[in-house]
């Protein structure tokens, strides 16, 4: 019988620890598929964050580093500078990348490090139990914002893609979502394009992926997908913010 579907070689057989309905699993899969399809899996070195994806080093079927909180872009810089011909990616959440690690991501982009960043934004600290993130929406409740995020006290949520797109060294910046099959396909297309930017030596690339956290948001998986669509996408518009001009 003809094989019509196979699990990507980019993931190990380890059972993940992610909560039911969490979209990290989808994102892992499309990142892994992209590496496999581009033929870079065997020379890939990934960097896992601190946060929900802390154990990503057990799930991606390639060499991995586990970085300190927020430092994945610095670790990836060290790796890429030693092994410029390898494929290097960092996988971070919003607490990791948009709060404690803002200096590292901004300067990795600024130096034009030839690495690829996958930024999973679910508007909350998941692993530590639902605390407010820099990306938590105004009015959204979190364990450290029990009355909802107050703009007067905490400011508005930070839009990392828009900020990073202003940096010269960042050659590819796109925000995608995985809340529907159509958006998952678009997300994979963006990740493939982002990875090619590194493979072609053009500079830094990042894909921000809007993701759900049913557990800490307090919704069912289906409600969470709907909440993302109705609340996150209006504030975090999807689309490409930057790609190299034709021929460059």
């Amino acid at each position: 019988m003809a094989i019509v579907f196979e699990k990507t070689k980019g993931l190990t057989d380890v059972q993940t620890h992610y909560c039911p309905g969490c979209t990290h699993g989808i994102i892992h899969r499309i990142v892994a598929e992209a590496m496999e399809e581009l033929g870079v899996l065997e020379k890939a070195i990934g960097v896992a964050p601190v946060g929900c994806a802390v154990l990503a080093y057990n799930y991606f079927n390639c060499d991995m580093h586990e970085a300190a909180h927020g430092r994945a872009p610095a670790v990836a810089t060290g790796i890429k500078r030693v092994l410029p011909d390898n494929f290097v990616f960092a996988y971070q959440g919003d607490g990791d990348l948009a709060s404690i690690g803002t200096a590292e991501i901004v300067h990795a982009a600024h130096r034009g490090e030839r690495i690829s960043s996958i930024f999973v934004n679910n508007a909350i600290y998941g692993m530590t139990g639902g605390q407010m993130a820099p990306t938590t929406l105004v009015g959204q409740k979190a364990t450290t914002a029990p009355y909802g995020r107050d703009e007067a006290l905490c400011g508005k949520p930070i839009r990392m893609s828009e900020m990073l797109a202003t940096i010269d060294g960042a050659k590819f910046v796109e925000r995608v979502s995985v809340n529907s099959p159509a958006n998952v396909r678009k997300a994979k297309k963006a990740i493939l394009e982002c990875f090619k930017i590194q493979i072609e030596g053009k500079g830094f690339g990042i894909v921000e992926v809007l993701s759900t956290c049913p557990t800490n948001w307090g919704y069912t998986p289906v409600e969470a997908l709907r909440w993302l669509e109705n609340n996150m996408i209006p504030y975090y518009p999807l689309g490409n913010f930057k790609r190299p001009e034709e021929g460059k």
């Binding site: 430092r71 060290g78 790796i79 590292e104 300067h107």
Partner: peptide, 16 residues
């Protein structure tokens, strides 16, 4: 960009 970043770059490089 900082001493923190520098030592984490060392971590990445040493791991390679």
């Amino acid at each position: 960009e900082s001493e923190i970043a520098a030592i984490n770059m060392v971590y990445g490089a040493a791991g390679c």
